[in-house]
Amino acid sequence: MTVANEQSAQTPAIELRAVTKRFGPRAVVDDVTLSIQRGRTTVILGPSGTGKSTLLRLATGLLEPEAGSVHTLGVDVFGAKKHELLRLRRRMGMLFQDNALFGSLSVFDNVAFPLRRVQRTAEPEVRRRVDELLQLVGLPELGDRLPDRLSGGQRKRVALARAMALSPELVLFDEPTSGLDPQTSASIDQLIKDTQTRLGLTFVVITHDIESAGIIADDAGLLLDGKVHLFGPRATVWASQDPRVRAFLERRAG
């Protein structure tokens, strides 16, 4: 490993410094400073509408903040030129809340899309890699199906396979278990945990599902009213006696 690579491996996966993002007069993300470490699964928890998804979009450069700086995988997201930002995004994968699968493409073609369009991979290699990814997410037989012929859990799995196609260093999950039944949610949690353990990648998961966070998180943060209320190792957050943390974790009306 070169010195530069070593230094880059030591920088946080995502670092936000005093970031504020407003929609109209309301600060959805309010002066947030946060550092997410590499090689771990970090879960950002919080009630709906507290800026969790906005945080992910800021980290990827899909949204621009009014104040503060964002560094992702060592790149200054809002100081980068457009081509640098596009190159940075190729080092990330993202699983969207609604999966964002291409409806007119089969499962196979959805997963193959980034390989064909971004990496211009040769077709035999595309076939090998897609088969491998569908195997990884437990859907080896469904390559020919269209996304609307799949269940919610199967769509999540396809979206994860597509997010992993370019062998990203960082994978972002926006509410991966939202809208799924408890059994399917548990299987997605297990898939996320197994995949992270096997590949050692950096996973950042945005969710309001406390049970899911308890299974997959190494680190956890609680976002309340656009601010990071508490951040640290999962055990520390879970053991916190802060009344607002307890109210959220015990699902009491705050």
């Binding site: 899909l62 596009l86 993202m94 609604d98 291409f102 369009r117």
Partner: peptide
């Protein structure tokens, strides 16, 4: 609205070109 355009952007592709 189904975030497919964002998905393209997240793959490092430019929706204007694609």
């Amino acid at each position: 609205v189904t975030r497919q355009v964002e998905a393209l952007e997240m793959m490092g592709l430019d929706p204007l070109v694609l």
